[in-house]
Amino acid sequence: MSNALSHPMVHAYLASVEAEAAVLSDDRRRDLVADLREHIESVLPQGFDDAEVRETLDRLGSPREIAAAAIAEEPGVQPLRPESGVRTAVTLGMVVLAALFFWGAGVGLVLAVVAAVRIWRSPSWTDRDKRLGIAGAFSPLLVTPAAAALLGSSGRLGAPELLGAFLIGTVFPLVVAVRLGRSAARLRPQAA
C-alpha cells in the first residue's frame, strides 16, 4: 500500500475538488471524492515520485472540470456562478454595517433585510453559505442585547458598555462576511 493519499499534492487536489463541488449534496460530493481517491491510489505505482503524482492528477483533469461534470449529472443543481466583486462587497458590507446600526432607528434592520435578500438571490453561494450569511446578518438581533445585558449586569449600562455590546454583535457578521467573501472570490476567473 502506498501513502498516495497523504501526499500534499493529492491532498490539495482532493480538497480543491471538494470546494469546487460545494453545491452538490454531501452524499454526492463524498462519493465523487471517494472515487477519485480510489483511482489515485490504484494508478500510482509503488514508490511513486512527485512527477508521477503530477501526471496522475493532470490526467484526471482539473478539479473544476470534474466538479462541473458531477454537477451536470445532477438535475436541478445549478453550478455556482461568479458575480462582480463590487456586488459582493456591497452585500457583505451591508451585513457588517447592519450589525453596527442594528439598534439605531431600524437602519440596521433594513440593511440586514436587504443584505439577506441579496445573499439569497446571488448565484455565488451554496445554500449552506446563504443560510450562514443570513444568520450573520440577523445575529445582532440576539447577540447585541445579550451582550449588553451581560456587560451591564455588574452595574449601570453606560456608553462604554453599549459600544462594547455593538462591537461584540459585529464579530459574527464580520466572520461570516470574510468567509462568504472568500468563497465568492474563488469563483472569479482570475482566481482559478
Binding site: D31, L32, G61, I66, A69, A70
Partner: peptide
C-alpha cells in the same frame, strides 16, 4: 478521451 476524472460522475449516475 476526456479528462479521466469526468468518467466517475458518469459511472455514479
Amino acid at each position: 478521451a476526456t479528462s479521466q476524472g469526468t468518467l466517475y460522475p458518469l459511472l455514479s449516475r
